[in-house]
Structures are given as C-alpha cells and as structure tokens.
C-alpha cells in the first residue's frame, strides 16, 4: 500500500519536474530497461519466501550471456537452439545451488556466495575476459528492441513469467509450501511437505529465469560480455524486500515485488530528468534506493510495533472503561 502510494507520488513529482517524463517513449524505455532486473526479482521472490537467498543470479546471467553468444557466433547455432541450451545450462546451474543447499543442507547465503564467484569466474575463463559476442541476426535482436501490439517485445515475456510465478505463489500448493518452509522448515517437514523438492524447484527456476534474462539482455544491448549483470542480484533483492517480502521468509507477494521493481526503475529514470540534479542523479538514486530499503524495513517494524501496542492498550483498556466513564 505504502509502496503503491510512493509510486504514485513519484509519477506526480517527476511529471511535474522531470523533462518529458510522461512521454510514451520514455515509459516504454522504463519497461525495457527494467525487464532483466524485474525477471531476476520475480524468481528471487520465491527463494526469499522460503527463507533463502540467491546471490549468484547476476553472475549466472553473465555466464549464460557469454555461453549464448559463443554458441551463436562461434558454434554457429541458431539463436533458438542456443537459447534452449542456455536455458538448460541456467537450470543446471540453479540445480547445482539447489543440490548443495538441499542435499548437503548448506546455508544458501554461503553456497550462492561461492557460486557468485564461480559463475562469474567461469564466464571470464571462457572469454579470457576479452572476447565479446556481437554478431546476432536481426530477427533475434528484435526481442530487445521491437514492439509487439504496442508493448516492447520483452515486456510480453516478462508478463508471461510474472503471470506464471504469480499463479505458482498465490494459487498453487507450491506457494503454500514455500511459505510454510519460510516460516519453519522443520514444521513443513513434519507436515509432510516435500521440503527438499520444493526448495530445489525455487533455485532451479531462479537459474532458468536468470538464463532467460541473459538472452533478453543480450538482445537489448546487442552484445554479450562476461561482466553482464554485475550487481543485478543486489537490485533484485532490493526490489523484493521493498515489495514487502520478509527477508526471513514466510510472507510476501509477487505483486508487491512488481511494485518494488517499478518503484526503483521509475526513481532512477525520473531523477535523471530533473534538470538541476541530472549530473548526480545516478549516485543519488543509489543513495535513495539504499535509504528507501532501510525506510521500508524500519517502517514495517514500526507499524507492527504500533499496531501491537494499540492492540495491547485496547485489551488493557477495556476492563477499565467503566471507571473512566
């Protein structure tokens, strides 16, 4: 709720002070530019819902991007076939995280910190750092720059993924078991849920979608490089937490995550259109995103505290009402 209000406030402020903010082309830009981070946030959300975290998605995006580029350019695969292989690799990489987390019961934070270095390292080793891939057919590049039925092409992919994940989280037993695991893994296990399988599914899904984001990013930037996606994991986590998902797991919503993605994307875009602060807008939006994250967390705690206190006062006030009156 607060976030939706914040988003509306952003729109009002930026359309008043930002140059050409409400121009349709600009709104299209905002959508295009936030697709990849939006995708990562969408799959980060179920992971965080289970009380886990995946720091490796940004690195995996880089690895998948160079693999995809190498397959198209050096091996001469068609973009379609290369995309299929890339998605598979993403799934396997996610599966590797899942294996270490569920089979060996290792903490996700540390496992994905390791694969954060490993995936990026592999991307650098494959390209020796220097190789970049930029020879893609135009039909493929359309994915990143064309529009379909008035919306950017990649927006349709995003909507589809968002739809699937929304249904998974809010309308199926998957979502319910993720929440249960987030509340208490032991409890979920005693309740007879296949905890390992459900956890693994969340991480594999994160891997596959990270690969998808890699393909879309490559199509948009028309180039694949080993450092693609650097730092995206932080933005994705920020969007999810901003969107009201508890970092401890157990509660959260997909639509909240979408609002979180939008709030950050609009903030970054809008700030760079206000004449007097254009020069420092990037740093400023970084600072504000950080501050916003803390404010959202603190606000949540404060609201809970206040409502608890109100509840407590009401219960203690009720018996004493007659004497006061």
């Amino acid at each position: 709720m607060i976030l939706a209000a914040f988003l509306v406030a952003e729109f009002i402020l930026f359309s008043a002070t930002g140059r050409n903010f409400l121009q349709p082309d600009n709104l299209t830009n905002i959508v295009r530019h936030s697709t990849e981070i939006g995708l990562l946030a969408l799959v980060m959300m179920p992971v965080i819902l289970t009380g886990g975290i995946d720091l490796s998605v940004g690195s995996l995006l880089g690895l998948c991007a160079v693999l995809f580029g190498k397959m198209v350019q050096d091996a001469g695969l068609s973009p379609g076939a290369a995309a299929a292989v890339t998605l598979l690799v993403g799934g396997i990489a996610g599966g590797f995280n899942a294996l270490l987390i569920t089979r060996l019961r290792l903490p996700p934070l540390i496992v994905t910190l390791g694969t954060f270095s490993l995936f990026r390292g592999l991307a650098e080793a494959i390209t020796k750092g220097t190789a970049t891939y930029s020879k893609f057919p135009d039909s493929f590049l359309a994915l990143g720059s064309a529009t379909f039925l008035g919306l950017p092409t990649q927006a349709w992919v995003f909507v589809a993924v968002a739809g699937v994940i929304w249904i998974l989280v809010h309308r199926t037993t998957f979502g319910r078991s993720w929440r249960a695991i987030g509340f208490s893994p032991e409890g979920a296990r005693y309740a007879g849920l296949p905890v390992e399988r459900r956890l693994a599914f969340a991480y594999v899904m994160a891997g596959v979608v990270a690969a998808l984001a890699a393909i879309i990013l490559t199509a948009r930037v028309t180039q694949a490089r080993a450092d693609a996606g650097t730092g995206y994991e932080l933005l994705a986590i920020t969007a999810v937490v901003l969107g009201g998902t508890s970092i401890f797991g157990g509660t959260g919503s997909v639509h909240g995550t979408l609002l979180g993605v939008a709030a950050i994307a609009v903030l970054t875009n809008g700030l760079s259109r206000i004449p007097s602060i254009m020069g420092v807008s990037r740093e400023l939006s970084g600072v504000l995103t950080g501050a916003l994250l803390i404010a959202a967390l603190a606000g949540g705690v404060l609201m809970k505290f206040l409502s608890e206190r109100r509840a407590r006062r009401q219960t203690s006030a009720t018996p004493s009402t007659p004497s006061n009156a």
Binding site: D25, N29, R32, H33, D227, R273, M278, G279, R282, G286
Partner: peptide, 23 residues
C-alpha cells in the same frame, strides 16, 4: 548534461542514451 554509469555495467550506457532520446 553529463551523465554516465557509476560502474562498468555494459548495459547502462545504452539505457542512458535511450533515456536522452526521450529527454
């Protein structure tokens, strides 16, 4: 107008240019 990426994210420059077109 002076604006650029704060890190070496290769996608950022494209975004900024596209942003300037609508600006």
């Amino acid at each position: 107008i002076f604006d650029g990426p704060t890190n070496t994210d290769p996608a950022k420059q494209n975004e900024i240019v596209e942003n300037w077109i609508t600006l």
